[in-house]
Amino acid sequence: MDMISRSWAIAKREWSSYFNSPVAYIFIIIFLALAGFFTFSVSGFYEAGQADLRGFFFWHPWLYLILVPAVAMRLWSEERRQGTIELLFTTSVTPAQAIVGKMVAAWAFLGLALLLTFPVPLTAAWLGQPDWGVIVSGYLASLLLAGAYLAVGMFTSALTRNQVISFALAVVLGLFLILAGFQPVTELLSQWAPGWLVDGVAAFSFMPHYEAMQRGVLDARDFIYFASVTGFMLFLTQLVLDNRTGR
């Protein structure tokens, strides 16, 4: 109970700190503008003549690649820079409690941004008869993907007090997690690497799991994948913080 109330207090503080600064509004505006631009202009939502959201969800891994580290980079770097991490970890709060609190707040924030894309499915529904199951599954996949990215960014943020370094590291790690299973890359790899290696590397990637869920296929293995990537990154974050505070 104690543990939950502390995490909750931290989550509330983080959440309001987003909206106390322009960061939240700028992030949401950029996210919505880019999502709209790619969906309608680049993917040709209207021209495709299909009432589905593939052209919308296709871009999310790439949007998140840049935007999620921008949200995550301050999570620990800022505590370090301001010195408030010392305040936090001398008040009976454990790193695990703080990680959970920050994760909940940041993920909820990304969820809010995602929720605000609701005009896109509404447009599809107005123009045709989309498969709502696929759309819900797509949103779920996108939310899980955002969470995994967030955990990566949380980890890199714990590594350094410099937000720029944290951001760059998160982008590089995220890029690896996309490209390892991105079809053009796997095709390139399979020209010289043995098939089992390509599959092995690709299995680490977000993409096969994300794409499967985009098609409306809800497989426990994809959930387990996202849960383990997220969990592992948060575990690494805890190791880094334990090392810093000596617990």
Binding site: D2, A9, Q82, G83, E86, L87, S92
Partner: peptide, 25 residues
Amino acid sequence: MPENTPLYDEMTVQAFLRFMAEIRG
């Protein structure tokens, strides 16, 4: 009280103290 008084700069004094009370249980 750590050296150089690190505080959550963007919070108001009251919100900060309430937060500290909350993480103190």
